[in-house]
């Protein structure tokens, strides 16, 4: 973590609230303040990296650029009991996972 950001943080408490909402997290006021500061530090670090001149360097999405693909061959799936084993509220008779009702 960079101790002193080179650029003033542009992240606001409202941004953190929005990110928390998207991540389905409920934050206390203290956590909001803490995360606003920490996330701003991370952004400042990213800005520092962005300052490096990369003109002429092709963008990289991944460190591995080689092709890794598998053949279209069937592999054994999990036995259903095993698939459902760690689910918090499965319905084994129906062979289904079960979650609180989702309104569409």
């Amino acid at each position: 973590m960079i101790a002193s950001p080179a650029v003033a943080p542009t992240l606001t408490s409202a941004d953190v609230e929005r990110i928390a909402a998207l991540a389905h997290l409920e934050l206390t006021a203290e956590e909001k303040a803490l995360f606003t500061r920490q996330l701003a530090d991370i952004l400042a670090y990213a800005e520092q990296v962005q300052a490096v001149d990369t003109s002429g360097v092709p963008a990289t999405a991944h460190v591995l650029a080689e092709r890794t693909e598998r053949e279209d061959e069937l592999q054994p799936s999990l036995p259903r009991e095993e698939a459902l084993a760690n689910a918090p509220d499965p319905a084994p008779e129906a062979g289904l996972f079960r979650v609180p009702r989702v309104i569409t």
């Binding site: 319905a91 129906a94 289904l96 996972f97 079960r98 009702r101 989702v102 569409t104």
Partner: peptide, 15 residues
Amino acid sequence: HEGFPDSDRRTYLDY
């Protein structure tokens, strides 16, 4: 979303 006794409270999933 439908067809189970507790469908008013639960959603079932087939992956």
